[in-house]
Design a protein around this nucleic acid. Structure first.
Lengths: 226, 226
DNA sequence: CGCTGAGTTGACGTAGGTCAAGCAGAGTGG
DNA sequence: CCACTCTGCTTGACCTACGTCAACTCAGCG
C-alpha cells in the first residue's frame, strides 16, 4: 500500500488525501514529518543501491549524500548531491534508478512512506511530496542545460548552484571530492581541477583549502554559466 | 486560479480534487480531456516562447514538437521531442523554461488548464497530471544519463528511445533534422551524421532516406547504449 | 618520519568540433 | 523536359578541448 505510492500512479496518492486535511505550507527544503529513525552512515557507504525497491524517503540531517549509477565499463555518473535539510529517494519507478551513498559521514533521517494513521496521506504531506517532485524535475532540467556546455561553464555553474544552496553567501564548503564533482559534471577530476585553478588565476574565485572556496566575483561566474 | 496550478504548489491541486471524483486510469501517453481547440502550426513556427506564462497544456495530434532554449552565444539546446499523443507544456515554475516549436507541420490540441465545471479538478485529470509529471522527470533523468556518454552511444540511445516511442517496431521515422538531433544530444550535426553512417557501415542500422531508419540489429544498439 | 589518499600540474593523445567542399532531392521556372 | 536554385545531408581535412597517463605536492596520521 505504501510502497505503491512512491512507485506509483496518482490514484493511491489522491485517494489517500481524501479525508482529513488542513491547508499546509509547501516546503522548499522538505519538512515531511512522520519520521522513523535517524541513521548514521560513514563516508562512502551505501544508503541504498540501484535497483532496490523504492519504499522510503530520506532526509539529510548532517553530512552530504550523492546518488550515482555505475556503467558497465566502470564509469560512474552522479545523479545529484543532497545537502542537510534536503530530501532524496523519490523515484518515478518502482525501484531506485540510482544508488545513494554518503559523501562524508552523515546522519540520514529515514521517513517511512508518510502515511497518516488510517493508511491515508494527509494533505500537508501530499503538498510536500508534490513540491519535492517539482523540485527534482527542475533539478534534472537544470542539469541537462549544464551538460550542454564547456568544462569551464559547467564548473562555474556548479559552484553557483552549490553556493545558492548554502546559507553562507560567497563562501562555499564543498563536501564532495574532485572525482565526485567530475562524475557529476561529466568531466574528469583533472579537468575540474584545472578549471578551478584557471578560475582562481582570473581571481574569479579563491581556493582556500581545496574544499573551501570563495566566490570573489559572482558576476563573472554568472556570465560564464550564462 | 487555473494558472496557479501549473506553476504551482500542490495546494490548489489537492483542494481542487476534493469533491466529486471517480477512480480513473492513468494514461501513459496522456489523454487529458477538457480540450479547447486544435491549432495548426507550420514547420519551425513557435507554439510558445521561453519565459511565457505557463497556463495551458498542449497535446500533439499530428506532426512533432520540440522544446528548446537558446544560449547567449547562439547555441541551441533541445529539451525534448514530442510525438503524436504526447503532452507537453507542463512546467515546474510559473513560466516556460523552454520555447516550443513545431518540428514539422503539426496539429496541436490546446488544453485549457483542465478544470472541471465548478473550478475544481476532477480526479482523473489529477491522476493524469501526476503521471505526466513523473513521465517528464523520468525523461529528464534518462537524458542526463545519455549525456554522460560518447557520441556513438548517444546516437544509439536516441534511436532506441525513438523506436520505443513508435508503434512500428524496427523502422523509425524521424521527423526532426540532423541539427535537431545534434542539439538534443549535445553534438554537432556532422557528428550525428558520421555516427549514423558508422552504424550503417557496421550494418547495425540501415538509412533508407535519411529520415527513415531501420534498426537491423537492435541488440547491438542496446549494447552500445548500455 | 614514511605512507596514503587527495589534489595539482605537465606532456601528449583523441573524440568530436570546425570549416569547407560536394551531393542528392524538391521545387520552380523556362 | 532540362537547367537552377535551395535546403538538408554527407564527407573530408584539420584543429582544439578535454581525456589520459604519469609525475609531483601536500596534508593527515600511524
Amino acid at each position: 500500500m505504501t510502497k505503491v505510492f512512491l512507485q506509483s500512479s496518482f490514484s493511491q496518492f489522491a485517494r489517500s488525501m481524501h479525508d482529513e486535511w488542513s491547508p499546509g505550507v509547501v516546503a522548499g527544503r522538505g519538512s515531511i514529518s512522520p519520521k522513523v529513525a535517524t541513521v548514521r552512515f560513514s563516508r562512502n557507504t551505501d544508503i541504498y543501491r540501484e535497483g532496490d525497491p523504492a519504499a522510503q524517503l530520506y532526509k539529510v540531517v548532517s553530512g552530504a549524500v550523492r546518488t550515482c549509477k555505475f556503467l558497465a565499463d566502470g564509469r560512474r555518473q552522479i545523479g545529484a548531491f543532497y545537502l542537510p535539510g534536503e530530501i532524496f529517494g523519490l523515484e518515478t519507478e518502482e525501484r531506485h534508478l540510482f544508488s545513494a551513498e554518503a559523501v562524508t559521514d552523515s546522519e540520514v533521517l529515514i521517513i517511512e512512506p508518510p502515511i497518516v494513521p488510517f493508511g491515508r496521506w494527509d494533505f500537508e504531506v501530499a503538498c510536500q511530496v508534490w513540491a519535492l517532485m517539482r523540485h527534482e524535475l527542475k533539478r534534472a532540467q537544470d542539469r541537462v542545460l549544464l551538460l550542454g556546455r564547456t568544462a569551464q561553464e559547467r564548473v562555474a555553474g556548479f559552484l553557483l548552484a552549490m553556493a545558492e544552496r548554502m546559507q553562507s553567501s560567497d563562501q562555499v564548503e564543498l563536501p564532495m571530492s574532485r572525482q565526485d564533482i567530475a562524475d557529476y559534471l561529466g568531466l574528469t577530476l583533472e579537468t575540474v581541477s584545472r578549471m578551478l585553478t584557471q578560475l582562481e588565476s582570473e581571481s574569479t574565485i579563491a581556493v582556500l583549502e581545496s574544499k573551501r572556496i570563495v566566490l570573489c566575483r559572482r558576476a563573472s561566474l554568472r556570465r560564464l554559466a550564462a
